[in-house]
């Protein structure tokens, strides 16, 4: 098959469009994650959008290119870092304030200002919500893209 000849990658049109669209999708996913407490979206949604961008690169460039560039151990490390940040923030709420996963940053001058009449554009508000959004976003992005990458590697090696 010609698929075996060119290492499972698609034609040059698909590769060019995928590599030129990729930064915009990643920036949009970062926007969804960072504005998770202001506009619709959040950690899971932005992470899934970023993972779909990585899946698009895997589909366009083939599994061997992915095998050269990124290892699944690093993706698993990123996912574990997200989980550790999540649980660490929750335990800081236990030790510094009242209870587990208490929103201890609300009211502090750095992260917790509460504007009157709705919050329209202040990013560093909402207490621990942006930190947890970033943690869950890292976790979902690394996890879903690791699943698809490992499955593509396994299917490519088996063939």
């Amino acid at each position: 098959m010609s698929e075996e000849k060119n290492n499972g990658r698609m034609s040059i049109i698909v590769r060019t469009i995928a590599s030129s669209v990729f930064p915009f999708i990643v920036i949009f996913s970062f926007y969804i994650i960072m504005h998770g407490h202001l506009t619709p979206g959040g950690g899971f949604q932005g992470g899934s959008v970023a993972a779909s961008a990585i899946v698009m690169l895997i589909a366009a460039y083939g599994y061997r290119k992915v095998d050269e560039r990124v290892k699944e151990n690093s993706l698993a490390c990123i996912e574990s870092i997200g989980a550790i940040i999540f649980v660490a923030v929750a335990f800081v709420g236990l030790f510094m304030a009242a209870s587990f996963m208490y929103n201890f940053l609300v009211g502090s001058p750095f992260f917790g200002e509460i504007p009157h009449g709705g919050n329209t554009g202040i990013l560093n508000s909402g207490g621990i919500l942006p930190i947890l959004n970033i943690a869950v976003g890292l976790k979902v992005m690394a996890g879903l893209s690791a699943v698809v990458a490992v499955m593509a590697l396994s299917a490519g090696e088996k063939k």
Binding site: H37, G42, A90, V106, G118, G126, G127, L129, L132
Partner: peptide
Amino acid sequence: NETGANNVVTSVVFDYRGYDTLGEATVLF
């Protein structure tokens, strides 16, 4: 007024019902 976040859904998911998000993260992991 309590969390300062405009998106009520995110403030429910990550603040009022944080345990559910922790469980979801555990399931995904």
